[in-house]
Amino acid sequence: MALLETTDLHVRFELFEGMSHVLNGVNLKVERGERVAVVGESGCGKSLTARAVLGLLRHTNAQIDGSVRFDGSELLSLSERGWRSIRGRRIGMIFQDPTAALNPTFTVGDQLFKVIIRGGRARTKRRAREIAREALRHTAIADPDRVLNAYPFQLSGGLAQRVLITMALVNEPELVLADEPGSALDVTVQEQTLRLMRALGDELGAAVLIITHNLGVVREFAQRVYVMYAGSIVEEADVDTLFHAPRHPYTRALLEAVPRLTGEMLPQPIEGVVPDYTAAPVGCRFHPRCPHAQPACQEPPPVVDLGGGHRVACVLPEAAP
């Protein structure tokens, strides 16, 4: 049994312009202890998937269909009370921008203690402080008390990012959702963030679902990867296979769009933009931008299993280079 499994997950928003059908049947799986990446352009529904998994869309007007199973039980039908035993305890989340994810009017300590207490690790603030100190030291913060007594705006971006990682991991969750961790910060801090997440994740045996638009991050961090386009998974494979034998035209285009230091090939940007979700293309959502599009692409694409966990949603999976 997979730790996390979404099946045919649809998310729609009712907008003034009409129904916006963003997630269009997302299927993904994360096994225990596994590091999985979801990669795609901005606006393709990656972050939305993470929010749907954690039930954060119930505070919006989103209509959600399908199934999200965590450790065998369905999350979408959970009550607010039921979420309490999941959020922050069994699933931790790392947000993208540490300066926006911390409340500016409360100290780091106040927020971290609350995370620990709500996570059931401590009953008193005093005990929470002990746990917090230990956890911050663990993320290579030399002077935990200074950080705990500081307000978020007094921390550097890297330090704030480590606080977010600490919050996500302090209650020893089985799964960590990481939404573009560190991408709001400079490259060296992002690098540190990934290394730290990997080390701490391994230590806890936690699975990590990382969401990114950066293929470099995928290669460095993940074992398995899902490529997402316009609210659908178009290809899944282990990292080596994806980089060496990509089969979906979108995956190939994505790889060709990456600038390289060596070789004569200039990066090739993908023509066009992610579609408007109130009028998304019928069938394969990539076909209007696809160089190999044909009439059959107007139908929902078949998912072809190429073996070894490599699946691709395309009518022309043989069109590999």
Binding site: I86, R87, G88, F95, D97, A101, P104
Partner: peptide
Amino acid sequence: QYIEMARAFAF
């Protein structure tokens, strides 16, 4: 985002 964050940690 910090309100979403608070919800993500079951406040």
